[in-house]
Design a protein around this nucleic acid. Sequence first.
DNA 1: GTTCTTACA
DNA 2: TGTAAGAA
Length: 147
Amino acid sequence: MIGKKLSLKADVIVGIGDLSKMTGVSTRQLRYWEEKGYIQAVPSKKNTTRKYKFEMSYKVQAIKRYLDQGYTLAKSVEQAEELRKKFEIWKKFIMDKVEKVEIVDAENDYGIIDLGDLEGDQNKRVYGVVDENGCHFEVRRQPDMDK
DNA sequence: GTTCTTACA
DNA sequence: TGTAAGAA
């Protein structure tokens, strides 16, 4: 598991103006989406202005992309949330199974991803290979331990 | 200067 | 959803 440290993200807060500029979605839309419950600002008693977690910009951008593709706002939100769900599953798998990433060719972003033992056969190891041919899996014999 | 709400096109 | 107005 190599991903734990990556989740130590500081929660950056942005105002509605910044969120709008970051995403290309008007402040009018952002307020409307929030009113509809499609996006949420960080709850606060005192402040009279909306504050959003930086992560919310991802959702807003996702919604905008689907909107631009012709989906209705409601459908765009559904798609965006489904995308996030899938991403969480994807992330969970990657964070749990990727043991090592070896850079083979830094120029072309080629490399080999060590995905650990093949289930049910500790003598074989699964690799994800990214090279000039694209991406593919390989199962190789378990390399002998150094020590 | 920015954000908020409300109202109208 | 854009824009305008007046207040905070």
